[in-house]
Amino acid sequence: MSDEQYRHESLNVLREIRDTQREILAQLAAQRTLAEQQVARSRDKVEESIGLQRLALQRQRTITLIAVPGILVCIVAIGYLVLRYF
C-alpha cells in the first residue's frame, strides 16, 4: 500500500468516525430532551401529590374536630344512660 493510499484510507476512516460521532451527539441531544421532559412531568406529578396530601390532611383535621367531640358526647350520653337505668 502506498503512502498516498494509506493517507486516503486514514482520511476515510476519520470521516466515518466523525460522522458516527455526530450521529451519536444528535441521539444524545434527543435523549437529553426526553429526559428533561420526563423530569418536568415527574416534578409536576410530585407537586400535585403534595397538594393532594395537604388537602387530605386539612380534611382529616376538619373531620377530627367534628367527629371526636361527637363521639365523646355519644360516649357520655351512653354512660349517663347506663348509670341512670342500672
Rank of each mutant, 00 (worst) to 15 (best):
Q58W: 00
V82Q: 15
S49N: 09
Q38N: 07
E23H: 11
I63H: 03
I63K: 09
H8W: 10
A40E: 10
E16L: 10
S49Y: 12
A35E: 10
I71P: 00
H8F: 10
A35H: 05
I78K: 01
E48V: 05
N12F: 04
D3E: 15
S10Q: 10
I75W: 01
R32M: 06
Y85N: 13
C74L: 14
V68K: 05
I75V: 15
L52W: 10
A77N: 01
Q5H: 08
L72H: 06
D3I: 07
A56G: 04
L72F: 10
S10A: 11
I63M: 03
L25Y: 04
Q58F: 02
Q21F: 03
Y6N: 04
E36F: 03
P69I: 00
A30S: 11
L65G: 06
Y85M: 11
V73Y: 03
L57M: 06
F86C: 09
S49F: 13
R7H: 05
L83F: 15
V13N: 05
Q37H: 12
I63G: 00
V46D: 12
Q5N: 11
A29K: 08
G51P: 01
E4Y: 08
Q21V: 07
D3M: 10
C74F: 04
L83V: 13
E47V: 07
A56V: 09
G79R: 05
I50D: 02
V76M: 12
A30R: 14
I24K: 03
H8N: 09
L52E: 12
M1T: 02
M1C: 01
I71E: 00
L34W: 01
Q37I: 09
Q37A: 11
M1D: 03
K45T: 11
S2G: 15
A77K: 01
R59K: 10
A30N: 13
R18A: 13
V82N: 06
Q37R: 11
G79K: 05
R84I: 02
S10P: 00
A40I: 06
L57H: 06
K45F: 07
E4Q: 12
R61D: 14
L65W: 13
E48Y: 11
Q58N: 07
G79A: 15
I71C: 01
V46T: 11
